[in-house]
């Protein structure tokens, strides 16, 4: 098997350069590449364009890259509560492109499937449609949206082997598999790195062909954004 293992996050991201476009997996703070983000902060790479569903919170996730002014542009569907993000956006330091969540996911998928563009009805008749080609199929309008191009995709998986095969856990899967398929170079950090043969081929979510570098992550914080619980006596489904 081809060995994709690198020693750590710093080695994995060694050739990410100023001005590169990155994809970062995760939904909110769930399933984000914590180790790679920390390494990027250490390296100080700047003028980055980040494609990610969200932009982290003030002191975690992509919020850490924003705080150290390493991000030139965010391409996201929802940027949530992030005071530093808001400040940089209003002062003009940060560019933001907001796109529908399904469009974001599918533009990643298209890249991974080798398709230059997709048609989606999301955003027809809204400001998202401005300047885009529209085409009618069977009486309904669709927007043409291009596949993303990203220099690097940074993803987080639960388990992986040194051949680059990945398995995700629960809803931390989210954007990770489609972004893993879409990067020119895909870097995967995993909670548990094993040898080829230890993962059942039938259980692989992302085949190793899509992954260029893999490393055993460490000290995962896995911060929870909205801790919602119920008491044993509670009958309500939600709060």
């Amino acid at each position: 098997m081809i060995n994709k293992q690198v020693s750590d996050a710093d080695e994995a991201i060694r050739d990410i350069k100023d001005g590169n476009t990155l994809m970062l997996g995760g939904f909110g703070l769930c399933g984000i590449p914590e180790n790679c983000i920390a390494a990027l902060v250490r390296k100080g790479t700047s003028q980055l364009t980040c494609i990610s569903n969200n932009a982290g919170v003030d002191d975690f996730g992509i919020g850490l890259l924003l705080k150290s002014r390493q991000v030139k542009k965010m391409i996201s569907s929802y940027v949530g509560e992030n005071a530093e993000f808001e400040r940089q956006l209003l002062s003009g330091e940060l560019e933001v492109e907001l796109i529908p969540q399904g469009t974001l996911a599918t533009r990643c998928m298209a890249a991974g499937y080798g398709m230059p563009a997709i048609y989606t009805p999301a955003g027809v008749g809204t400001e998202v449609a401005e300047g885009k080609e529209t085409r009618n199929f069977n009486g309904k309008d669709y927007l043409m949206e291009y596949a993303f191009e990203a220099d690097f995709a940074l993803v987080k998986a639960w388990k992986g082997d040194t051949a680059g095969n990945l398995i995700f856990r629960s809803t931390s899967r989210n954007f990770n598999p489609v972004m893993a398929m879409a990067g020119k170079i895909t870097i995967a950090e995993v909670e548990e790195l094993v040898q080829p043969g230890e993962l059942d081929p039938d259980h692989i979510h992302t085949p190793g062909v899509y992954v260029h570098r893999i490393f055993q992550g460490k000290e995962y914080e896995k911060r929870i954004e909205q801790r919602t619980v119920r008491s044993k006596s509670e009958t309500n489904y939600v709060g």
């Binding site: 911060r223 954004e225 909205q226 619980v229």
Partner: peptide
């Protein structure tokens, strides 16, 4: 929602 102490950071809904 999970019972207190059974929260799983890998298991969230679209409202996080």
């Amino acid at each position: 929602f999970p019972y207190e102490g059974e929260e799983d950071p890998d298991l969230i809904n679209a409202g996080k």
